[in-house]
């Protein structure tokens, strides 16, 4: 891979995306605030996005399918955020809280 500091290569991207993915998972698992969880979720999706772009550039540069995939991820992430925020807003009206822990009308 050459000099880690000067030659920016696939490894660097993967490390960044790996860190992002791990952070996302940690956020998703630890946050009790629904908005916080959604932010973690964006990190997961963006980690995947970085992977796609990086892999496209380094392992199959003659095609663009990885790049296209990222565009779809971005679009779907936006749609997802809209959906999720609508539902969170709905529950905020019900219980005046966006903490996932507060949502416990159902047990068992």
């Amino acid at each position: 891979m050459g000099n880690m500091l000067t030659d920016i290569g696939l490894g660097h991207y993967l490390i960044v995306s790996g860190i992002l993915f791990t952070l996302g998972l940690v956020v998703v698992m630890t946050r009790r605030n629904a908005i916080g969880v959604l932010m973690g979720l964006e990190m997961l999706l963006n980690a995947a996005g970085i992977n796609f772009v990086a892999f496209n550039r380094f392992s199959a540069p003659e095609r663009l399918d990885g790049q296209i995939f990222v565009i779809f991820i971005i679009i779907l992430a936006a749609a997802e955020a809209a959906t999720a925020l609508a539902l969170v807003l709905n529950i905020f009206h019900r219980i005046s809280s966006i903490h996932v822990d507060e949502a416990r009308a159902m047990k068992g």
Binding site: A34, V37, L41, A47, A48, L87, V88, V100, A103
Partner: peptide
Amino acid sequence: AAEGGVKYVIYGSVASGIMVY
């Protein structure tokens, strides 16, 4: 229903986030 919806969207998005990775 409100709770169900929020739980579904949060867990579901996380699962698909992991899948897409």
